[in-house]
Design a protein around this nucleic acid. Structure first.
Length: 310
DNA sequence: AAGACGAAAGTGGTTGA
DNA sequence: TCAACAACTTTCGTCTT
């Protein structure tokens, strides 16, 4: 299965076309520096995808909260009320009161006062929000939550930020699911440093002994084409070219995203749907220079005369 | 004016002694 | 542990469309 995204990463102002955009971290907005237009607000709606209005909607309602790995205690917990009242509102005797006091204390020790649990609580919340921002399916988010728990057990969080590790777990989860995302894309959407994120990902994988198959350019072609608004015809021809390249071993040692970008550049041009190097660079997270180097290489290896399509 | 080009210097990770 | 190395980035002046 191929996870597609309709949303193109915004790189240009829709109003004035300027590329001079600024990200406001505190407000979660992307603003155009030339005309001031707010291009993206991070409104994260984590509400239910449906509402229950009346009897006709009854089938949609579920009873009770679903258990969810993204909740620190999987959503299964009952709190001891803090008020020293019984169910009818009457004050309790001092003996019962002190017993309750002990119970509360015990409960909070067992659950949240433990710093590990507090960390998890925090992280699960954070990860749910991040997952939404990355538009990841629930299955990948749950897997990421599991990885985070393991990271916590292994004491990997020490010295690193919770959001940093959480983001790394989401990234790794994508890799494991066979739908890798470019680090640049993840770091952009989560507003985190690319280097820092990359480093954390590597360390988490190392310490947890998580090994992932090397990424292939073909895994990125679909994502990039859809962000560029290119049809499946272009996508297929890019994948086809990739297969040719693979047997010639021209892909070894090359970054898969750069390769995918170059293949798309070539096939879009061949198919008469030319995209600029700039636009492809923006969605693929590599620079124009890399696209140039790569596509020159590939064109000569595949004996494609680009002049014809200019 | 936008897009493409390519040289040159810099960065961070990998590898092998 | 350190230096050499390959891939990639950044920056920038120049050429092409």
């Amino acid at each position: 299965m191929n996870i597609m995204e309709d949303e193109r990463r915004i790189v240009k102002c829709t109003e004035c076309g300027s590329r001079d955009l600024e990200t406001d971290n505190t407000r979660g907005e992307v603003v155009c520096n030339s005309c001031g237009l707010v291009l993206e607000e991070n409104v994260i709606d984590q509400g239910a995808e449906w509402n229950v209005y009346g009897p006709e909607d009854e089938g949609k309602a579920r009873t009770g909260a679903p258990t969810n790995l993204l909740l620190h205690d999987k959503g299964l917990s009952t709190d001891i009320d803090w008020q020293n009242k019984d169910y009818s509102g009457k004050a309790l005797s001092s003996a019962t009161r002190s017993q309750l006091h002990r119970m509360r204390k015990w409960q909070s020790r067992a659950r949240s006062s433990n710093s590990r649990e507090r960390n998890l609580q925090n992280a699960m919340q954070e990860m749910a929000a991040m997952g939404a921002r990355l538009e990841l399916p629930k299955s990948i988010q749950s897997e990421a939550a599991l990885i985070y728990r393991r990271a916590l057990e292994a004491n990997i969080i020490r010295g690193r930020s919770i959001p940093g590790v959480a983001a790394a777990c989401l990234y790794i989860s994508c890799e494991l699911a066979g739908v890798p995302r470019p680090i640049s894309d993840v770091s952009y959407r989560l507003r985190m440093g690319k280097k820092e994120l990359g480093r954390t990902i590597r360390q988490v994988k190392l310490k947890l002994r998580i090994r992932t198959a090397p990424k292939e350019a073909s895994q990125f072609i679909g994502q990039f084409c859809s962000k560029l608004g290119l049809n499946s015809e272009i996508e297929n021809s890019a994948v086809e070219m990739f297969n040719e390249i693979k047997v010639m071993e021209l892909d070894s040692g090359r970054g898969p995203t750069g390769l995918a970008a170059a293949l798309i550049y070539i096939s879009a041009m061949k198919g008469g749907q030319r995209r600029t190097q700039r636009d492809i660079a923006d969605v693929s997270g590599v620079t124009e220079v890399t696209i140039r180097n790569r596509y020159k290489e590939l064109a000569s290896a595949l004996k494609i005369n680009m002049e014809e399509y200019m």
